[in-house]
Design a binder for these strands. Structure first.
Lengths: 158, 158
DNA sequence: TATTGTTATACTCTATAACTATA
DNA sequence: TATAGTTATAGAGTATAACAATA
């Protein structure tokens, strides 16, 4: 019998994702919150600051999780919470510090090697193709806010 | 500032993986063990039977998890544990039942629609490309047994 | 009353290790 | 003594809901 499993999207995605997570455990030892902390740090250092809640939604992180991820990064001195410029004093934004920027740069380099490890089976062109396709799916999933209305999906499947 | 996050492999993989998991929650309501149960069922129904432990390793599932996944499938009557043909009476293999086969067929169809949902942003050719690339990475990760020796990776990253 | 961010609780996973029966 | 499968325990992770401050 042929290896049916190899064609299963769930299996392939899961295997690749877990391989990435394993690698990231090694890469992100210096970043509180691991891969998720790195994600927040990336946004804080490189992107325009937005309210914490909005960032959580954008990254696909639960807002309660976001709180202690930011806690960890702030304790390490990589980011800091600031009041938002607007006049709504409830909102805070997360901004990267100089130290955070340096750490991010260094981690970037390590990450690239970690990713090479995961993508070792593909040549450079294929890696780019994969990245581009995944990016489109991810952005699509985020904008459509995945299957947030499960009802519609259930109908689709019926 | 540009959206740096969108280019992060960890973020894209995570988003797509979670979108898949969400969808699979809807698709696999009739399969004990969810996506993982379906994986085991797929192997049991379609592939040559191998010892439980070997199957666990092949699917990337922990052997203790495998036990209760198989428990669930067996209670539902979708698979059954059998002694292995060889003479080692410790090993058992998981074989799909007729009912299991029928359930698998039906679930297959639902799954395809669920996957279409996740891959909606890509055209048919792109979907095939993505599947093929992921498959190669997954098979590679499984054979190389991911980063099972983290030591070597740590060296690589140093 | 609704919303932002935080805290607290409970629950679900998963990883570890111990156990049994064979070898 | 080592291995296949199972069981039991504990720890990490996550989701839910309640909370304080502001709107």
């Amino acid at each position: 019998m042929p290896p049916v499993i190899d064609h299963d999207l769930g299996w392939t995605l899961g295997m690749v994702f877990r391989a990435y997570v394993k690698t990231s455990d090694e890469v992100f030892t210096n970043v509180p919150g691991g891969a998720r902390g790195y994600l927040v740090l990336t946004a804080a250092v490189n992107e325009d600051p937005i309210p914490i809640g909005a960032l959580a939604q954008r990254l696909g992180i639960d807002k309660t999780v976001m709180t202690y991820v930011v806690d960890g990064l702030e304790e390490a001195g990589f980011v800091e919470r600031r009041p938002c410029p607007g006049r709504d004093r409830r909102t805070k934004q997360v901004a990267g510090t100089t130290l955070g920027s340096q750490v991010w740069d260094a981690t970037q380099a390590r990450l690239r090697r970690g990713e090479d490890h995961v993508l070792a089976a593909l040549d450079p062109a294929e890696r780019e193709t994969l990245r581009a396709l995944l990016q489109r799916l991810a952005v699509d999933a985020q904008t459509h806010h995945p299957v947030h209305d499960a009802c519609q999906l259930v109908e689709d499947l019926a």
